[in-house]
Simulated scan of single mutants.
Amino acid sequence: MIKKFVSSLMLFSAVAAGGSGMSFADDGWDKTFEKSDRVNVRKVEFSNRYGIVLTGDLYIPKDASGKLPAIAVSGPFGAVKEQSSGLYAQTLAERGFVTLAFDPSFTGESKGTPRNVASPDINTEDFSAAVDYLSNSEYVNPEAVGILGICGFGGFAINAAAMDTRIKATVASTMYDMTRVSARGYNDSVDENARYEMKKNLNNQRTEDFRNGSYKPGVGLPEKLTGDEPQFVKDYWDYYKTKRGFHERSINSNGHWNMTSSLSFINMPILQYSDEIRSPVLVIHGEKAHSRYFGEDAFRKLKGNNKELLIIKGANHVDLYDNPDKIPFDGIAEFYKKNLK
């Protein structure tokens, strides 16, 4: 039973300037968290280097004056900006930052076809595109821009920091390395022969997809639980499939990743140059998270005395999506205040 759910989650169930005149979205609140009365939020669009138009929510403190430090936020993998990333963005905006929670390429309100596909390269680029936008915003000090990735986008955030020297500080919260789990399975349990069979099946699916003119979805979270699922599947379900975190545009809530997305993740590992990151990095993980080893291994590869690992006592993977008693928002804000100047 566990092997079944592990293999399923390996298939991924697991252009305007800042002052462009867009009106603030004060009604029609569509987030999974309560709206703050201390922050203004507006919908924005910007393009990445591949010409894909990304959509984000820009959060600005109501008492803002001058050019502020800024943070681009995305994740978890399969989520949208109205869920966890928006909560992080709004909460950090309450603490004095301009923040941008955005939908990655091919998902949510962002453009790109086919839909519900992911890429280690393009999703890393999405963070740099958000830095492009923030660096040109009238509200932002371009020398004080950081990023924050949650779950799979924690891995992409560290990957982006290894490439983009404009990123002055990075937080990876409850991170996954999606390329590692796709190629090797949980706890590196998939060997070369199993990986080869997986690639054969996925490439056969490519042929069928071309023949059919459509892309077959992978296996996502079940619509109902039987009670026999591993605890981490129950934790995901409790967030994405209930009132707590459900959103109709979220792949993990209401859809499935494109099955053949995993081919590029199997073949192109991220974090290859993360040991060359010179800017500060904070890795946060739950003590009881099934994914904890991703964060600890990523942290071990980082070099320098400006890297931090924070393990949250008693927290599981999903607690760091939205649990205010577990997410160390004050500590995250202090990290950015120290390093975004």
Results as ranks from 00 to 15, higher is better:
residue 235 D to N: 14
residue 236 Y to F: 15
residue 236 Y to P: 06
residue 238 D to K: 13
residue 239 Y to V: 07
residue 241 K to C: 09
residue 241 K to F: 03
residue 242 T to Y: 02
residue 242 T to N: 09
residue 242 T to S: 11
residue 242 T to K: 12
residue 242 T to G: 09
residue 243 K to H: 11
residue 244 R to V: 10
residue 245 G to R: 08
residue 245 G to V: 02
residue 247 H to G: 04
residue 247 H to R: 03
residue 247 H to P: 03
residue 248 E to V: 11
residue 249 R to A: 10
residue 249 R to C: 04
residue 251 I to K: 00
residue 251 I to R: 00
residue 252 N to I: 00
residue 253 S to N: 04
residue 253 S to L: 06
residue 254 N to S: 08
residue 254 N to V: 02
residue 256 H to K: 13
residue 256 H to Y: 14
residue 257 W to H: 14
residue 257 W to I: 11
residue 257 W to D: 06
residue 257 W to R: 00
residue 258 N to F: 10
residue 259 M to V: 11
residue 260 T to K: 02
residue 261 S to G: 03
residue 262 S to F: 06
residue 262 S to V: 15
residue 263 L to I: 15
residue 263 L to M: 09
residue 264 S to M: 08
residue 265 F to K: 00
residue 266 I to Q: 01
residue 267 N to P: 02
residue 267 N to I: 04
residue 267 N to T: 08
residue 268 M to D: 13
residue 269 P to V: 03
residue 270 I to E: 01
residue 270 I to D: 00
residue 271 L to N: 12
residue 271 L to H: 14
residue 273 Y to A: 14
residue 274 S to C: 13
residue 274 S to T: 14
residue 274 S to Q: 11
residue 276 E to W: 08
residue 276 E to D: 12
residue 276 E to Y: 12
residue 277 I to P: 00
residue 277 I to E: 00
residue 278 R to P: 01
residue 280 P to L: 04
residue 283 V to L: 11
residue 283 V to M: 12
residue 283 V to C: 07
residue 284 I to R: 05
residue 285 H to M: 10
residue 286 G to W: 03
residue 287 E to W: 10
residue 288 K to I: 09
residue 289 A to D: 15
residue 290 H to Q: 11
residue 290 H to K: 10
residue 292 R to A: 14
residue 292 R to G: 14
residue 292 R to F: 09
residue 293 Y to A: 13
residue 294 F to C: 05
residue 295 G to F: 02
residue 295 G to A: 11
residue 296 E to P: 06
residue 297 D to C: 05
residue 297 D to A: 14
residue 297 D to M: 13
residue 298 A to K: 06
residue 300 R to S: 15
residue 300 R to G: 15
residue 301 K to S: 11
residue 301 K to Q: 15
residue 302 L to Y: 02
residue 304 G to I: 06
residue 304 G to R: 04
residue 306 N to H: 12
residue 306 N to S: 13
residue 307 K to F: 05
residue 307 K to W: 07
residue 309 L to Q: 12
residue 309 L to C: 08
residue 309 L to Y: 12
residue 311 I to A: 11
residue 311 I to T: 15
residue 311 I to V: 15
residue 312 I to C: 05
residue 315 A to H: 05
residue 315 A to R: 03
residue 315 A to D: 04
residue 316 N to M: 02
residue 317 H to C: 02
residue 317 H to I: 01
residue 317 H to S: 05
residue 317 H to K: 07
residue 319 D to Y: 03
residue 320 L to N: 07
residue 321 Y to G: 05
residue 321 Y to C: 04
residue 321 Y to E: 07
residue 322 D to T: 11
residue 322 D to W: 09
residue 322 D to C: 06
residue 323 N to D: 15
residue 323 N to Y: 07
residue 324 P to Y: 10
residue 324 P to N: 13
